[in-house]
Design a protein around this nucleic acid. Structure first.
Lengths: 133, 133
DNA sequence: GTCCCTGCAAAAGTTTTGCATTGCG
DNA sequence: CGCAATGCAAAACTTTTGCAGGGAC
């Protein structure tokens, strides 16, 4: 993944941040990542975490997501195109993969006159646990 | 739209904020709305604008949107379900209407185990003006 | 009079930036 | 040595909250 061939230096702090994002299965915020990185890099500062997340996102090593109406960035080590679903009850976030039909993208282009490059799709609902409660 | 039958008072400040959002065709931010409202309500404060936008959104008179990776809320007086497309070059935002096939929603439910209540779909691309440049 | 609303200021929260220091290459 | 990266603190920015004053009913 990250090695000497990258156009940026792989410092222990950066490696720790990247490891935390890869190990996470809950789309953590920068603050949550900071707390987890503290476990193995106690001296790390906020700024380094933010700078590293921006660096990794700029190099497409991770994704920066804006989910729900939170106004807080979340991070995802799964860089393959995929979608998300959010539980409106408990806030859980899950990865899903529901490609749009080609016709839908074509319709978006036709309606808007835009050249479509991609899309972001999030579903809202209630997770299995919250439904049975 | 807003009249005496609403469960909240229609003050001149609130009417001005609502009017600005309805007249806007660019999905303005709270700060932009504040600047425009100043034109007819020079004494209005930030807090009143934010409180009014939250009030109107809570009563489904307007929509609060989180578009792109901006981490800033935008507002839309079009409360009918619809989608958006963003120009990655100039930042333009357009409304579009591309309903997802039923099968796509069903697939999301099946993959996640969630009870799907809705979705948000944004396309990314380049607008006609930016393409020809 | 009561209650809701407003405006101002301060607070809260996230993210960025400035700068001196550190440490790899 | 030279340059990039770090850590700390302060700043920038959006949004919320506390509170005293004022207006509507």
């Amino acid at each position: 993944m990250l090695d000497a061939t990258r156009p940026f230096r792989l410092t222990p702090q950066r490696a720790a941040v990247f490891q935390v994002v890869r190990d996470a299965c809950d789309h953590p915020t920068a603050r949550e990542i900071y707390a987890r990185v503290k476990a193995c890099q106690p001296g790390i500062g906020f700024a380094t975490v933010y700078r590293t997340l921006n660096l990794l996102a700029a190099h497409r090593e991770i994704l920066e997501l804006q989910l729900g109406d939170d106004a807080v960035a979340r991070y995802d080590a799964n860089t393959a195109p995929h979608d998300h679903i959010l539980c409106t009850s408990c806030g859980a976030i899950a990865d899903i993969n529901v490609p749009l039909p080609e016709s839908t993208t074509r319709q978006a282009a036709r309606e808007s006159g835009f050249e479509v490059e991609g899309y972001e799709l999030q579903f809202l609902g209630r997770c299995a646990g919250c439904v049975t409660q």
